[in-house]
């Protein structure tokens, strides 16, 4: 079980949250100019790293706001939480 520090409500149990998957995926500004291959890359391809993962979480049973989490996919350590729109923190190693 994870303890996640919501930027708005503070540390709460994981069961209050919903994981929304990889963060920082930008919708291409001109979809009509993309090939099917490039659209598929945007829509489906994921980093799925073994290591630090930057992902979106929703505080579903709290403030109902989305935010970002930097979490390790092997240790499950939550290193940072930060508001939507902010760039991901740089994590050494």
């Amino acid at each position: 079980m994870l303890l996640i520090a919501c930027p708005h409500c503070g540390p709460r149990e994981q069961t209050e949250f919903v994981c929304g998957g990889e963060s920082h995926i930008e919708r291409p500004p001109t979809p009509e100019a993309l090939t099917d291959h490039d659209w598929g890359q945007y829509l489906f391809m994921r980093k799925n790293p073994k290591g630090w993962h930057y992902e979106r979480w929703l505080h579903a049973q709290g403030c109902r706001r989305w935010f970002n989490v930097a979490r390790h996919t092997v240790s499950h350590e939550v290193r940072a939480t930060y508001p939507m729109g902010q760039p991901p923190p740089v994590i050494e190693g």
Binding site: M1, K50, E55, R71, T73, V74, H76
Partner: peptide, 13 residues
């Protein structure tokens, strides 16, 4: 589990 993992262990919930 709802989040990405390579840890071969699951959540208690």
């Amino acid at each position: 589990d709802s989040y990405n993992s390579y840890a071969q262990r699951g959540s208690f919930n």
